[in-house]
């Protein structure tokens, strides 16, 4: 049993990553990664919401009528997202402005619906909690990697602090403005998938 729990937590972080393997939750993964800070906040918010909604749905799973389960799931998720969004507005207003609509869009993040449908509806609260944390962290990991590359090369900063020293600029180094733009996020995720699949050969398509 302990082994199974361990699997539920670890599996989604690397082997069965929600973003690069299951291709879920791409929308927000791409949009919030031009800087590291919003990416981390977004990753944490999603982790908390997936874990909490997994627990709630798993507790309710025997009482939800099958036909209206999607609506019930959406309402639970929407309530949690509203709470997180209000908390962010109160304590981290600038980040919540940066994330703009993408915090609300966690509701329609496919990772949530996918985990609720595929895992929480069949498993107990504790396993569901671990599964939620695992998937949230898997999602956050990709966000952080992409945001790290984009912020470092795009503006020479990390978490808002200057990392590339001034003498580099004096010798003609330029920030790559292309990294900040939207298309680069897609291409970078493509490259992450490339690396991931070169290592995990059994995921390659025929």
């Amino acid at each position: 049993m302990a082994n199974k729990n361990n699997e539920a937590l670890k599996q989604p972080i690397w082997v069965n990553n929600p973003v690069v393997v299951q291709i879920l939750g791409i929308c927000s993964a791409l949009a919030v990664t031009s800087q590291l800070k919003p990416a981390i906040v977004m990753g944490l918010s999603v982790t908390i919401i997936v874990a909490m909604s997994n627990v709630i749905i798993s507790l309710l799973r025997n009482t939800i009528p099958n036909r209206i389960r999607i609506i019930v799931q959406l309402v639970v998720v929407a309530a949690l997202v509203t709470i997180v969004s209000e908390i962010l507005k109160a304590f981290a207003y600038d980040v919540s402005v940066q994330l703009s609509v993408y915090i609300g869009l966690i509701i329609t993040n496919c990772i949530l619906m996918g985990r609720l449908e595929a895992f929480a509806m069949q498993n107990g609260p504790w396993e569901s909690f671990l599964d939620g944390i695992g998937n949230g962290l898997g999602y956050a990991a990709i966000l952080v990697v992409v945001a790290f590359v984009r912020e470092l090369f795009g503006s020479g900063k990390l978490l808002g602090f200057q990392v590339v020293p001034q003498w580099c600029y004096d010798h003609g180094y330029l920030n790559n403005g292309f990294m900040i733009m939207a298309p680069m996020a897609l291409i970078l995720v493509g490259c992450v998938i490339w690396i991931h699949r070169s290592i995990n050969k059994d995921l390659q398509e025929k």
């Binding site: 995720v189 493509g190 998938i193 490339w194 699949r197």
Partner: peptide
């Protein structure tokens, strides 16, 4: 290239 096939190349 094999690891890029499917999703990877679609993203690019």
């Amino acid at each position: 290239p094999k690891p890029l096939k499917g999703v990877g190349i679609t993203f690019i």
